[in-house]
Amino acid sequence: MSLFFMNFLNGVSLGMLLFLISIGLTIIFGVLGVLNFAHGSLYMLGAYFCFQFVSLSHNFLGALLLAPLFVALIGGVIEGTLLRPVYGRDVSFQLLLTFGVLLVLDDAVRLIWGSGYHIVDPPAFLGGVVRLAGFTYPVYSLFILFIGPMIGLGLWGFFRLTLWGKKIRAASMDREMAAGIGIDVNRLFTGVFMFGAWLAGVGGTLAAPLRAIGPSMGEKIIIESFIVVVIGGLGSFPGAFLGAMILGLINAYGAQYLPKATMALPYILLAIILLTKPRGLLSKES
């Protein structure tokens, strides 16, 4: 029973990280119509920037503030110079282009920080452990469990209550109409991409104390993020949350109950959901 409970916590905290990475992906797709293959690399950049800031200043919270901003800036450059020419083209071109971006970022990281692994410590007040159901459990994971929904709620409020949020939602429903009512679509697109990149950066920064930071760490996460946003419903915000939770829990309980099948489980789940709900669980269209 306690193992069941522990793996519930494990699954949910993994789900929270997946959620943070996936919402950026789903927002970018929802508004720009671009499936960003390099999103995992932006997450990776978040982790590396976090490592850099923490090793310079020993201040994790400062890194949490700064690292995602740097990622957002890089996102802005990518959107402004590379993505803009391919809007409206077939999704395969965007995949190829963002794949090119992924290759460049992966190698750039290796050239700057080397091919070895780095680790980041959580701040001291989050570094401890608590006892739960006969296990010790890291405070930092509880922090993730807490901050995930906070960021989720913050985003929800942003989209529902602020002017920018409403503009973004309008643009994601109908780009032409948005332009018609005087929204500067170019600026909006840049803003949204930077925002998505920022979220990936937040994911990377928050993941840094839990993961070994190494080359190509973004490639592992990108397919999982694709699965999350597709089973949740592309462009859907609550869908990304639901998808991330499902994937996180499947990972945790799979390890406990079906260890031989963990590799296939996410894909089997994906197929079942897409065949029963072709647009994902919480899609806007169905």
């Binding site: 499936l35 999704v91 397919i223 694709f226 699965i227 597709v230 592309l234 031989k260 590799m263 296939a264 894909y267 089997i268 994906l270 197929a271 897409l274 065949l275 072709p278 647009r279």
Partner: peptide, 24 residues
Amino acid sequence: RLDEIYFAILTLGFGMMFYTLVHQ
């Protein structure tokens, strides 16, 4: 039965099932 990106992701899922089968 599916189109566009949903078709792409579903085939990705099936592809990875085959990969897992062969790998395991």
